[in-house]
Nucleic acid binder design. Structure first.
Lengths: 138, 138
DNA sequence: CTTGAACCTATAGCCGCTAGAGGATGTAGC
DNA sequence: GCTACATCCTCTAGCGGCTATAGGTTCAAG
């Protein structure tokens, strides 16, 4: 019927100390306890913890997750707020992709220069002065 | 001629305590000091600190940055030795790009839900049940 | 020579976990 | 019922990578 913290951990792919940490900071409600003070969870908690894990993996901060969870518990309210949180995040991610792609190109150049000297490799300059070096040829 | 820590901070867009922290953990060399023990920097340091900032923004850990910086300070060494290190970083960067791209697609799906109610809003669903919602159309 | 911004060190705190010690609980097999 | 042992409990301390504060010193312009 109910789940131990270990079972919850396995099902939601979240480590046990992390579950207790989430309880501590109020992301997870305090669960029922056995006589001997062991935590017992319900399938509902698996869903909530999955939600939290996914949001964390997507780079949402705990505070943002708290907000999103708040929205989820008021399903009649507009999702404009959730929309804003997500949009801000999207912009950030797109920016990172662009810069990582530029970096990858430079690393590929570097790896391609097999028997040369580091002095000829431009990785340092590229990262030190990203905008200037970005579009130069190797 | 030389720069104060404040000027370095402004030019490299890195906060002053962070600069001192980087010195402490050995990412930045100890700079020259005035009689009164104040740090004085050179344009070279702006470049190095820019490098560090960009690498951090791209998600490299301090230890990886240490290695990359190591390559730059042995310009007489063959690329062959450094080749493996660089290739490892390239792999890492490619992984990051892949994961961020997947993330972006998902965020774009989420943002597509504009003025609905939370009940209809995919943000909550997607996060609550990642695998199910990932490839559905909006 | 004074003033005030900028600097110094040292320490403590932040987030988001993660690990360990030392002990209590729960369950399966006898 | 009893034992064995995996799993659980709390508490504390540590991690990376900063960031903020307190309390004092230096530097440069006027």
């Amino acid at each position: 019927m109910s789940l131990t913290i270990g079972e919850l951990s396995r099902q939601a792919q979240v480590k046990i100390p992390t579950i207790r940490y989430y309880e501590q900071i109020g992301l997870l409600a305090e669960p029922v306890r056995t006589e001997g003070q062991q935590r017992r969870y319900w399938p509902e908690d698996v869903r909530r913890l999955n939600f939290i894990r996914h949001a964390r993996e997507l780079g949402f901060e705990v505070e943002a997750i708290r907000q999103l969870l708040g929205l989820a518990s008021h399903p009649d309210r507009s999702c404009g707020e959730a929309h804003e949180i997500t949009k801000a995040h999207l912009t950030e991610v797109n920016d990172k992709i662009a810069r990582l792609t530029a970096l990858r190109d430079e690393l590929q150049n570097m790896v391609a220069c097999d028997n040369g000297k580091v002095a000829k490799c431009r990785i340092i300059e590229v990262l030190a002065d990203h905008d200037k070096c970005l579009h130069e040829t190797h």
